[in-house]
Amino acid sequence: MTNLICITCPKGCHLCVDEQNDYAVTGNSCPRGAEYGRNELLHPVRVITSTVRITGAMIPRLPVKTDRPLPKEKMFDCMQLINQITVQAPVQVGQILAANILGTDVNLVAAKTLPVYP
């Protein structure tokens, strides 16, 4: 039995996941909690948020995020890739900065619009 706290909503339900009973979940207030509990043990994923270097803008770092969750075991490899990226202003929110990260079909996108600094 594994105990988790659900992060799908602010309620923070205390989940119990029974691995020996087909990953049955108890303690959830909604179906999303049950899905989260099963997925967290079978195939955990995370959305990555970070920053990359940007040139030609008013600030030196651009906030970025993945456009969908990435397998948790690829998080550190993804961060190594992010740390190597430098983009040139202008950048629009939602603009793809790195496509198909690590062959996962997950893209890294800009989380802020930054125009060229005059």
Rank of each mutant, 00 (worst) to 15 (best):
Q92R: 09
R32N: 14
N39T: 14
P10S: 13
V47I: 08
E19R: 00
Q84E: 10
D67E: 15
T113V: 05
I59Y: 02
Y36E: 05
I54M: 06
I59E: 11
H43Y: 12
H14R: 10
Q80P: 04
L108I: 01
I54Y: 04
I54S: 02
L108Q: 04
L4D: 15
N83E: 14
F76T: 01
C16W: 07
T51C: 08
V47G: 08
M75S: 09
I96W: 10
P115D: 05
R61W: 14
M75C: 06
N39F: 14
L114V: 06
L15A: 07
K112H: 11
P44A: 12
K112P: 10
V25H: 00
C30R: 02
M1H: 12
T55Q: 15
G27V: 08
R46F: 09
I5K: 00
G37Y: 07
D67N: 13
A89C: 11
E73N: 09
P71Q: 07
G94M: 09
I48D: 07
I7G: 08
P60L: 04
I96M: 15
N3E: 11
I59T: 11
Q88A: 06
L108S: 00
Q84V: 09
L102I: 02
G33C: 06
G12K: 09
V47F: 12
H43I: 11
A110Y: 05
L108W: 03
P10Q: 06
T66S: 12
L108V: 00
L42S: 10
Q95Y: 14
T55L: 10
L70Q: 02
R53E: 12
S29G: 14
A57S: 10
Y36K: 08
T104G: 05
Y36A: 06
V109D: 06
A110T: 04
H14Q: 04
V106C: 08
I101S: 06
I101D: 03
I54E: 07
R53V: 01
Y36C: 08
I96D: 12
S50Q: 14
I5C: 01
A99N: 07
I101Y: 10
G94P: 02
R46Q: 15
L108R: 01
P31R: 04
S29V: 13
A89R: 04
L102Y: 09
L62Q: 10
K74Q: 09
M1D: 00
N83K: 14
A34Q: 10
T113D: 03
T104N: 07
G12W: 03
R46V: 09
H14A: 14
I85A: 03
L42V: 07
Q80N: 15
A98R: 10
D18F: 10
V87T: 14
L42P: 13
Q80D: 13
P63K: 11
C6A: 06
L15P: 02
L41V: 07
V52L: 00
Q88K: 09
I96G: 02
M1I: 01
N28Y: 01
G103A: 05
M75G: 01
R38L: 15
N83C: 11
Y117G: 03
Y23D: 11
L97Q: 04
T86Q: 13
T8N: 14
A98P: 01
Y117P: 03
P31Y: 03
V116N: 05
L42N: 04
Q80I: 13
V87P: 02
L4M: 12
D22L: 13
F76V: 03
R46L: 08
I7H: 08
L81M: 13
C30D: 00
K11F: 05
N21S: 03
S50P: 15
I5N: 02
